[in-house]
């Protein structure tokens, strides 16, 4: 008898059983006042019983109950589900499984390194259904540079849909094999796109993101491509620029926490003057580099593209190669063995 397992006194157990409450589910929808009347006990006592019953009803209490999980399993699952894969195993590996939800991640690099490609890939990958170890979410893509092209999204979405169907265990879920799980058009439908033409528009949009996401709770990633473009023109007052940028970063961080979604900011690279010499770094200056939780720098190493974790509270600084292919971001396949960096 289930009520027998509840940590309550024997008299109470007896009262419960004699009143006909034998299973935990029979207690679950009960109000304390009703229970106190039925068992002729005080309402506080009834409340305690209901509390215990509801806690005992959750399967995690004891791994002996069928379908239960241990905390270890849950942790493991959490690690799987709160990250968005980049479609490159090497890249995912250094990122601890992918782009982290609840955090703001900045990805920067020189033109042509593949920032926009990673952005598009993430907007597609966030939609991978839960069945396929994805998030089954939607994406918001804020395009400030005009480089977001639907034909490229479609190309990447097609490749993603094909791979999903190829790797999906159809028999396990009782679906006819070879069935298409998601059409490429479905991917397009789940990407909400904004084209932003000035920094005022950009700030206004970031301010209203909260409201937008409230209406679209499925949104699991916000990508801004790029955060930089409109902030590199016409700012004579650099202090103002810094204030605006950090205000925006704070809002985005809050958003990431509140809705447990990933925020990905793409940044450009710029030459920085230090002590008379030019150095390559990400744009927007030193104060901005504190604004994001994670910072990933993309660079060329010979003929290969590499990503380097420049800053992260939980990840080691490591680098990994990746490739931009017609199907999107993938592992680098090369004859020469991967160079062990760092």
């Amino acid at each position: 008898m289930e009520v027998g397992r509840l940590p309550i006194s024997a008299t109470q157990k007896g009262k419960l059983i004699s009143a006909g409450y034998t299973s935990l589910s029979s207690l679950s929808s009960l109000s304390p006042s009703l229970l106190s009347r039925d068992l002729s006990i005080t309402e506080t006592e009834a409340l305690v019983i209901i509390k215990h019953a509801s806690r005992g009803g959750s399967p995690s209490r004891s791994p002996a109950i069928n379908g239960a999980q241990t905390a270890w399993e849950m942790l493991h699952e959490e690690e799987l589900f709160t990250r968005i894969t980049t479609s490159s195993a090497d890249l995912d590996n250094i990122l601890g499984g992918g782009i982290s939800c609840k955090e703001v991640t900045e990805i920067g690099g020189i033109p042509g390194i593949g920032k926009t490609q990673i952005g598009i890939q993430l907007a597609v990958n966030v939609q991978i259904p839960v069945d396929c170890r994805g998030l089954g979410g939607k994406a918001i893509y804020i395009d400030t540079e005009g480089s977001f092209m639907v034909e490229r999204v479609l190309q990447i979405a097609k490749a993603c849909a094909e791979e999903m169907s190829a790797n999906y265990d159809f028999s396990r879920n009782g679906l006819p094999s070879g069935q298409v799980l998601m059409q490429p058009q479905d991917f397009l439908e789940n990407i909400i796109c904004y084209r932003v033409c000035s920094y005022t528009e950009q700030i206004a949009l970031v301010n209203s993101l909260d409201k937008i996401i409230c209406a679209h709770r499925e949104v699991k990633i916000v990508i801004i491509d790029s955060i930089t473009f409109h902030f590199r023109q016409d700012f004579d007052d650099m202090a103002l620029r810094t204030r605006l940028l950090s205000g925006m970063a704070l809002k985005l961080m809050k958003l990431a926490k509140k809705f447990s979604l990933a925020v990905v900011l793409l940044n450009q690279a710029a030459n920085k003057y230090t002590e008379g010499s030019l150095q390559l770094s990400l744009a927007l200056g030193d104060s901005w580099s504190h604004a994001c939780t994670n910072r990933i720098i993309l660079y060329w190493n010979g003929n290969e593209r590499y990503a380097y974790i420049d800053k992260s509270p939980s990840l080691r600084s490591r680098s990994a190669p990746y490739a931009v292919t017609s199907s999107g971001i993938r592992n680098l396949v090369s004859d020469s063995k991967r160079m062990k960096m760092m």
Binding site: V150, L188, E189, N190, I191, I192, C193, Y194, A204
Partner: peptide, 14 residues
């Protein structure tokens, strides 16, 4: 703000 899903955009940029 102009909110658009990609379905309304032409598949192929002119």
């Amino acid at each position: 703000m102009r909110h658009e899903t990609l379905l309304v955009r032409p598949r192929l940029t002119p």
